[in-house]
Amino acid sequence: MLSQSRFADSLRRFFDSDIWYSFKSSRVTVAAAIVTAVMILTAIFSPWIAPQNPFDPASLDLMDAFTPPVWYEDGVPKYLLGTDDQGRDMLSALMYGARISIFVGFVAVLVSMLIGVTLGVIAGYVGGAVDALIMRIADIQFTFPAILVALLVDGIMRGILPKEVHDDLVLVVIILALGVSGWPQFARTVRGSTLVEKNKEYVLAARVIGLKRSTIMLSHVLPNVLGPVLVIGTINLAIAILGEATLSFLGVGVPPTEPSLGTLIRIGNDFLFSGEWWIVIFPGLTLALLVLSVNLLGDWLRDALNPKLR
């Protein structure tokens, strides 16, 4: 009972807060949040709500290939947005594709976050040579565009892993490539806030009672530096989704057997000249809408959490 009323209490507090007010009063942000939520929910539940399983070759009929969207004369209601070259229902392929794109994006950002936050706290708290080393590496990587780093990691992994193993682990490789390419931003921010927290009294108190350095970093400093991480995480989610799509479009990402949005665009790109525009435009629009919404959410979050702008 108690926990329930506490939950209601914190819920009420949330709806009274400045953040909720600033969210409510920005129509663009509300729209972006709705689009993002719908896309994520569709992606999660796609196996249950998609009309067809596009990854199952048995459910595909080559006779249905290149069916145009339903508003064309030879479109059929079964395939609302038409089909691709293998007779895959575009709508289902989009749902499943977004599922892979969002999943890869999320996990890649988690990987970046894990590497970046860990190294950032260590660099900030330990300082000295460790700090210099970590931040120099971050600086060097920061001079290169993230997509280039991701391509390079992808290429190196291809060199290390034998072909069959690589094909099995392709999603892991992409997640690692994107994850590694995104960590410096987290590390920089977290290092900065760690430097501030380090000199506060609660850390001093923890040190005085003789806690281990790792304990102080993990359970005292870490919770207090996580605020900005959320903002960077949201913006990086958009970047990671875009990065995955780019890798896949370039042909070094998700394979066409279980396509992500980027892979779908790559497939559709081959039919640009023969008039089957829907194979490329629908995945393209979905990707653009997804990235734009997440970007807008990230921008709003950054402004809402930044007390200087209030």
């Binding site: 780019t246 479009f249 665009i265 790109n269 640009l272 000249f273 653009a288 990235v291 970007n295």
Partner: peptide, 19 residues
């Protein structure tokens, strides 16, 4: 221009001005 992926801009241009 910032949110659209580069390759999508290229594909749209090809579709409009090329095809």
């Amino acid at each position: 221009g910032i949110a659209l992926p580069t390759f999508l801009i290229g594909i749209l241009l090809i579709l409009i001005f090329g095809v």
